[in-house]
Amino acid sequence: MTTNDDFGNIPKLEIVDMHFSYSPFDEVLSNLSLKVEDKEFVSVIGDSGAGKTTLFRAINGLEKVNEGYIRLDGYLQSSSFFHIPAEKRSIGTIFQDYALFPHLNVEKNIKYALKDSNFDKKFYENILDLLRVEGLLDRYIDELSGGQKQRIALARSLVRKPKLLLMDEPFSNLDRNLRVKIRRELKQIFKDIGSTVLLITHDSEEALSLSDKVGFLYAGEIIQFSTPQKIYESPDHSIIAKSISNSNVIFGEVSNNKVITFIGEFILDEIIDENSKVYINVKPNQLSINKEEDNFIIKDKEFLEGSQLYIISDIDSGIELNVKMPNSCDYQIGQNVGIEIINKEVNKLLE
């Protein structure tokens, strides 16, 4: 008998060279590849218009792909010549717009796809308790708030113990306290039930805190796929650096493996040819501002959970930089300041 072991480990979800377009002149996903291993939590993040929702719909079978293929447990789900409809795919889905049945009460919505063979009463009750929906079971969907509807949709998918759970912005309507609580506990629940999870989201904090791997979707293509720490500390592209950590993308020239920039020298984490022109990733907490110089002006500032993010502008060039400082620092908008480098280690970016 032939088993999966005979061919090595088969990914739970595998997407290879996928293309999708709504019209011949409107390609939304281009040459997209993604691999999710069994029992792995993977997130795909990206800005609005990057193709996140289209990717979600292609994976769960709501859209037919033009090229490439999608496999689940090694079995073909979608290609240019083959398509399994959504209702026949072994995928649990949580939609951003809930997709709940208004004519059924909450309890019947949650139990809708459950059968006696896959009903685990203790697990079912644990999910209801975690999501705080026990008191809502007799209500109908039009009697619920947006956050309550999202919690019901999440409960409906989780109680089935799906092998692949596909989620599109599932926490967007939850209040912050509940969102943080669920985020802290969900990964252990998914591990306990042996689920593989793919989360589609614009929230980088959410993705980084939950995931084993994170893919960044830009212009219809995954441009980096790595661990949360790697994608945060050493992003490959300037768009990722700016989106995830408010990083500064600074141009410079390599000299003796240092990068000479308009604000000073930085040290690269790799060997680069002498005199090369590069862009580097400088995080806001690698810089500091002072009152000893006055070649920058503070354009704006934001309070960020105990810190201040200052947006400062070089008076001569107009180049803006983000600088993160302790909240105890009292600099004002319009004030002239200087800048200093407090951590010189950087990585090179693809522009």
Rank of each mutant, 00 (worst) to 15 (best):
G220C: 11
E351L: 15
L287D: 02
D38P: 02
G318S: 10
T2W: 10
A58K: 01
E292A: 13
I289K: 03
F82A: 05
I342H: 00
I94F: 05
I91D: 00
Y310D: 05
V346I: 14
L198A: 10
F225N: 04
I200W: 08
D6W: 06
I250N: 00
L186K: 06
N4M: 14
F81Q: 12
S209E: 10
R184S: 13
L131T: 04
E107L: 13
P170Y: 09
G338S: 01
V278P: 03
I272F: 11
G146K: 10
K121W: 06
L164S: 10
I250R: 01
K64S: 09
Y124M: 04
D47I: 15
K181S: 15
T261S: 07
V28Q: 09
S90E: 14
G220V: 03
P170A: 12
I200Q: 01
Y140F: 15
D192C: 04
G252H: 01
F216Q: 04
N256D: 13
L131M: 11
R89P: 00
G146W: 12
L34F: 11
G51M: 04
M167N: 01
K115I: 12
N4H: 06
D120A: 06
R179V: 11
S78R: 08
I267V: 14
G92M: 00
V65N: 05
Y331G: 09
I250L: 07
S234W: 06
S195C: 09
L350W: 12
I231M: 02
E233Y: 05
L158F: 12
